[in-house]
Amino acid sequence: MTTALWRRALAEGVGTAVLVAVVVGSGIQATVLSHDVGVQLLANSLATVFGLGVLIALLGPVSGAHFNPVVTLAAWWTGRRGRDGLAPRDVVAYLPAQIIGAIGGAILADAMFARPLVRWSTHNRFAGHLWLGEIVATAGLVALIFGLSRTGRAHQAPVAVASYIGAAYWFTSSTSFANPAVTIGRAFTDTFAGIAPASLPPFIAAQLLGGALGLILVTAVFGRLSPSAADEVVLPHGEQQLAEPLTTKAP
């Protein structure tokens, strides 16, 4: 039996909230502990790598651990002709959960550090080279996720996806948001990890374009995705209910 949709949506909301809390909270902590921007970015990226890896490993078996509207939309698109892919009702449940979770995560991080709960970011990120960075970061992320699925290595996602995001922090000009929900959440905090609301539309457009390019890339390299493979993003999920505690099983 598949996991109930409300449980999967809850997992997406909680996972995205914790992810944004990690990104924003570690950014605040880094600026408190160091005035060196390089050290701040290093601390922020390391915390994100570890946090994301743990979240994927924990919640992947429940919802697939998307935590990202681009990944959800890509999973729906590739599996739309199959019985096991994401249904439109799944997308309708996942996307609001991710966005609400991201906003809640930013508020939670600010609360933990005694910051104003909601203060719009003044960190302007409105520039063409940053949009290009988001296209590259998101295309690589989608290509990685679906490439792992296509080659039967989705179980490596916790390490692979977290490692890629950590690397993309450093090799992309935008520091790799690569996620519309996280981008929206980060607009609610005027801290190191924030993004000004006016910078949101082109960032999100670049991420959506990057997601489409990522699907084109993985199809060109690995061949057309099968509907069954599309359901294994980020981790295989929904094929059975969560395991019962061992104590409930007869010897």
Rank of each mutant, 00 (worst) to 15 (best):
A11F: 07
E232W: 06
F171Y: 15
A212S: 09
G64E: 03
E134I: 01
G104Y: 09
G25L: 14
I204P: 06
W120G: 10
H66K: 08
T78D: 10
A93T: 05
L46M: 14
A102S: 13
R153Y: 03
L42A: 15
V24I: 14
P61V: 08
R224Y: 06
E134Y: 07
M112P: 10
P180Q: 12
A11V: 05
A109E: 08
I99E: 03
V20C: 04
E244S: 14
G27R: 07
A198M: 09
L10F: 14
G38A: 06
R7T: 01
T172G: 01
W131H: 03
L213V: 13
D36V: 14
A97E: 10
S163I: 01
I135S: 10
T31K: 11
T2A: 14
A157R: 00
F192K: 00
V54R: 03
A111N: 05
A65G: 06
E239Y: 13
L52I: 14
T189S: 15
P180K: 06
L144P: 07
Y169F: 14
H66E: 12
G210F: 04
T183Q: 00
A4T: 00
A181T: 00
L95N: 04
S26W: 02
L144A: 01
V118H: 12
G133W: 03
L148H: 02
L5N: 07
F146P: 00
F146V: 06
L59W: 12
L5F: 04
V161Q: 01
V32P: 00
V20A: 05
E134H: 04
F222N: 11
V234P: 01
A139M: 12
W76D: 11
I28R: 00
G13N: 12
V218F: 12
H155R: 13
A93S: 13
D231C: 03
L148R: 01
A75V: 03
S174L: 08
A250P: 04
R81S: 09
W6I: 12
R89M: 11
G53D: 06
S34I: 12
G27W: 01
A196C: 04
A212T: 13
A21H: 09
G79F: 13
T172E: 11
V39W: 02
A74E: 07
V54E: 03
D36N: 11
P88I: 02
A114E: 13
L10K: 02
I103H: 10
R7E: 09
W120D: 05
A17Q: 03
G51M: 08
F203C: 09
T175E: 09
F113P: 13
L141E: 00
A181Y: 07
A230G: 11
M112I: 15
V24R: 01
A139K: 01
L10I: 04
P227W: 14
L19Y: 02
F50N: 07
G147Q: 09
V233N: 15
R7S: 11
Y164Q: 08
Y169D: 02
G140M: 11
T48W: 08
I195T: 05
H129Q: 13
T172P: 02
L213D: 07
G238I: 02
Q207H: 10
P227A: 14
V218Q: 14
T191D: 06
G79V: 03
T189L: 04
P180Y: 04
V37A: 08
F192L: 05
Q40K: 12
D36T: 13
G60C: 08
M112D: 00
H155V: 08
A198H: 13
G152H: 00
L55A: 09
G105Y: 10
A230L: 11
A74Y: 08
I28Y: 01
